[in-house]
Design a protein around this nucleic acid. Structure first.
Lengths: 118, 118
DNA sequence: CTAGCACTTAGAGTTAACTCAAAGTCAAGT
DNA sequence: ACTTGACTTTGAGTTAACTCTAAGTGCTAG
């Protein structure tokens, strides 16, 4: 798969895909004889995983660490698990904040609706 | 209330409080005869509201718009309501993304736990 | 053969949201 | 009177995460 195809499929710009690879956020992608990236299914899955995690606000720094640990093999399984658990904890906490804000917005919107019952 | 007190009470640095005021994210705070900020209860409520919205990821730009509309009086009630509804929609959508990510993390963590049953 | 296009790199530029620094004012304590 | 310390302003600096630019390479169509 070319970079343009991956970009289209996952909705991430080629610039961002190259950037992610450069900083180690996704493992290096193989190239054809002309030095052009050729994404495997495996590569796509990584990109998709990263996209999902970034969407939820996990910091790039942490994800780089995770990828790096992954590449170091089975010895890092425990650390990786702890990393994920910690990130899960933070994610949940952010979601709770957002839930509170959502309720507050609902309350405010309701009050605005009562203001102008058309 | 002094800026230091508000800062302590709401966990926002004085620098940030001044910054918020400068860019119009909170209405101007009154000063005493020496030009030093003296926050009213009303001011605190604004700061707290902004803090809550920022926590949930609402962009500063949008919140400035909201405050500005608020200061223009009752004529903007409808617009303000629409603004809040739109932000609510976005917030909910982000929360749904995060929910998916949370589930994905749970799945991965579960798999890691099976890897090393101690 | 050459014009165009899609890719490559390294590095510079952008945006949002703070955060800090420098220079100044004022009231209170010694 | 002088120093200390909390406040003030303006404007510059920082950080995260892209995003763009310039210069270069190499296949493909005319």
């Amino acid at each position: 798969m070319t970079i343009a195809e991956v970009s289209g499929k996952l909705g991430i710009s080629p610039d961002t895909l190259r950037y992610y690879e450069r900083i180690g956020l996704i493992p290096c992608v193989n190239r054809n004889k002309n030095g052009i990236r050729d994404y495997t299914e495996e590569d796509c899955k990584w990109v998709e995983f990263i996209k999902c995690m970034r969407n939820a606000g996990l910091p790039i720094e942490v994800l780089i660490e995770y990828v790096s640990l992954f590449q170091q093999g089975d010895a890092t399984i425990e650390v990786r698990k702890e990393l994920l658990i910690e990130q899960r904890r933070r994610l949940l906490s952010r979601m709770e904040d957002m839930q509170k804000t959502l309720e507050r917005l609902d309350y405010k919107i309701e009050r605005y609706k009562q203001c102008e019952p058309k």
